[in-house]
Amino acid sequence: MRADLELIYDWVPQGTHVLDLACGDGALLERLAQEKSVTGYGLEIDPAGITQCVARGVNVIEHNLDDGLGSFCDNSYDQVIMTQALQALRRPDKMLDEMLRVAEEGIITFPNFAYWRHRVHLGLRGYMPVSKSLPHAWYDTPNIHLSTFNDFEHLCREKGLVIVDRAVGVGDHRGHWTSKWWPNLFGEIAIFRVRRR
């Protein structure tokens, strides 16, 4: 499983009812169901991902996240998880509101634009960063709202959300000590667990 998914795995308690936004091939939900009796649904828009979920026995619903979560009732889930999709949404801030309407707690991961390699790309070489976490060229990227570890913390503070946990992923590993101390600089993937107050 992807490094950020490994971390999220630990943050989902036994028997939780979750909604996994942009659940991909369903690997996380499958493991959570098998090992932690987690129930719930994944939302996905990619046909191949949906078929893979179905083949795994993961409940998946074809859904465009830009349409919001209107079909899901208030407080109908324990947690809403969204991995690597925040930056591709039309209004990430509104999605954050929606997530915390549907559940009390949200887990969000996204590529940290302030990661030092990205800074080197842009600051020294003068090119839009292309990396493992941001693999697209500027003209065909689905990532239309790039942000940093600090930006997201700022948004959470503005919305009055409680940051329960935060972590970073670097490459295939969980954060090195450098990323723990300076996450905005050394964290390639930002991982947040937030709650409404």
Binding site: T39, Y41, P47, I50, T51, C53, V54, V58, N59, V60, I61, E62, S71, F72, C73, S76
Partner: peptide, 15 residues
């Protein structure tokens, strides 16, 4: 699909 998720039933949906 929405009725089934509200009822907590296992469901997958594709369009």
């Amino acid at each position: 699909v929405d009725a089934l998720t509200r009822a907590g039933k296992p469901v997958s949906y594709a369009n």
